[in-house]
Structure formats: structure tokens, C-alpha cells
Nucleic acid binder design. Structure first.
Length: 232
DNA sequence: ACCCGACTATTTGTACTGGT
DNA sequence: ACCAGTACAAATAGTCGGGT
């Protein structure tokens, strides 16, 4: 591995960790000596990388570290454009706007030739023909998932019967035709999937979900027989 | 084209200091 | 006790120019 490749690998390793990593662990992970790692850390710091090191704890990349240019391959840029255009095509203005803003931020730090790829990529996404969704409800559900609050919903099932339920929402599934809320249902006492277009009313409650979102997701994955780390 | 030696950059190991 | 950081000497790898 060349020195420049090693420095990139070091940054990527630090980026993967949310907690401090010891120099010893980093050095053995990269197959270099501790002394060389110290030199590499110093090199990265001199180039502007905000790496915090504390005796007894380890190293951590400070939040907000700006991505250096040349960080994306053409395929990665196409994936980003395709993903953001897909989000943009959904019936959710706040997410669509966020996708456009995120793409603009990425474009701002790309070197010119990659920015050109970003602007001219011709991967298209068709408009969603999903049943009319209540935009406010979708924004409300995302907010409740983030803050781990219970939600009271009025849900119309396939037999057209309406029930009031209190659920602990933890995921939103976006499919071609419908969007599905995944939540723990207090009424049924188990995980349930709710089609977003069948939620007639929703209200975020003051009360927090008794279980953390990560725990709910883990249990749900287990129930569905899904691997632990795949995207939903 | 190949070899050789000089030079430079990089890496390593060890010992030590100091902060948590 | 654990671990970041520094200093120093030595080893190793890579580069370059000159000679054959």
C-alpha cells in the first residue's frame, strides 16, 4: 500500500468509528507500526483533518470534517444522483427539497470535471404514481421516528374498518407504489406494517417509545428474518 | 539496458514523558 | 494502568545519475 493510499484508508477507518480508537488498534488494522501511525495522523492533521487524540482514550475524527475533493468515483456520483432524484420524485416536498440541497452541497466541493458529471448524469427516475399521501403526516412520522415518540394514528385497513392505535414508529419503507410505516402496535402487541396512504390521522404524543429505535429495528429484523445490517 | 553507489524519504524499535 | 506523543538511532525502500 502506498503512503497516500494508507492515509486515505486511515481517514476512512476513523470515519467508520463514532468512538475513539486507540493508535494501537489503528496501526494493527493498517498493518503499520505505532510510530508510523503517529506520523500519518500528524500528516493528516497538517492537511486540515480535524483528528482529536487524547491519552487514555484514542483518536476520533471530529464531526463536521469537510470531505476533501476527489472523494467520489463516477459510479458513486451516479448512485448519489439517482438516489436523490428518486427521493425528489416522491410526494414529499420536504424530503425532495433536502435531496436537492444535499446534492448541491456535494456539488460545491467536487472538482470541476466531477461536478460536470453531477450536472449531466442522465439516469432518470419516473414520477411516483403512489396513492395520494398526506404530506404533513409523512413529515410528522419522520419526526416521530427521529425523536422516538409514540404516535396515535387512525388507520383504515383493507376491509375498510377504521381503528385508533398508539404505535411506536421506527422505520419508513419506500416502495414503488406505496410507503409503509413500520411500528410496534400497542393494540396488537407486536410489530405491524401500516400503508401510509391508509393512515387517516396522526398525532405525535408527548410520551416516548419505551424501547429505543435501534432495539425495535433489531427485533423487527429478527422477526422478518432479515440480516442485521442491510438497508431496509 | 543494466548495474552500482550516493542520496533521500520512509519506517521501525526503543526509551521516555506526561495526561487521564 | 493505559495510552498519546516525542526523541533518537538504525534499517529499509525508492530515486537518480553516471559508468559500462
Amino acid at each position: 500500500m502506498t503512503r497516500s493510499a494508507r492515509l486515505l484508508a486511515l481517514i476512512q477507518t476513523l470515519r467508520r468509528h463514532r468512538h475513539p480508537v486507540t493508535g494501537d488498534a489503528l496501526a494493527s488494522g493498517l498493518g503499520i507500526s505505532l510510530r508510523t501511525l503517529y506520523r500519518d495522523i500528524a500528516t493528516l492533521q497538517s492537511q486540515g483533518a480535524q483528528i482529536d487524540g487524547a491519552p487514555g482514550q484514542g483518536y476520533m475524527l471530529r464531526e463536521g470534517f469537510v470531505l476533501p475533493p476527489l472523494m467520489f468515483t463516477l459510479e458513486e456520483i451516479e448512485a448519489l444522483v439517482l438516489g436523490s432524484r428518486w427521493v425528489n420524485s416522491r410526494e414529499d416536498p420536504s424530503l425532495a427539497s433536502a435531496a436537492r440541497d444535499a446534492l448541491a452541497k456535494i456539488g460545491a466541493v467536487l472538482p470541476p470535471h466531477l461536478r460536470h458529471e453531477l450536472d449531466t448524469t442522465t439516469l432518470m427516475v419516473g414520477r411516483s404514481d403512489a396513492p395520494g399521501l398526506d404530506r404533513d403526516v409523512m413529515a410528522l412520522l419522520r419526526k416521530a421516528i427521529r425523536s422516538e415518540h409514540k404516535v396515535q394514528i387512525q388507520y383504515r385497513d383493507l376491509q375498510d374498518s377504521v381503528t385508533d392505535r398508539i404505535v411506536w414508529p421506527f422505520a419508513l419503507g419506500f416502495f414503488d407504489q406505496v410507503q409503509v410505516l413500520v411500528a410496534w402496535c400497542e393494540l396488537r402487541g407486536t410489530h405491524r406494517h401500516f400503508r401510509a396512504d391508509r393512515i387517516e390521522q396522526a398525532q405525535v404524543l408527548e410520551e416516548r417509545s419505551p424501547r429505543r429505535r435501534t432495539v425495535l429495528i433489531r427485533d423487527w429484523r429478527q422477526q422478518q428474518g432479515l440480516p442485521a445490517t442491510d438497508g431496509i
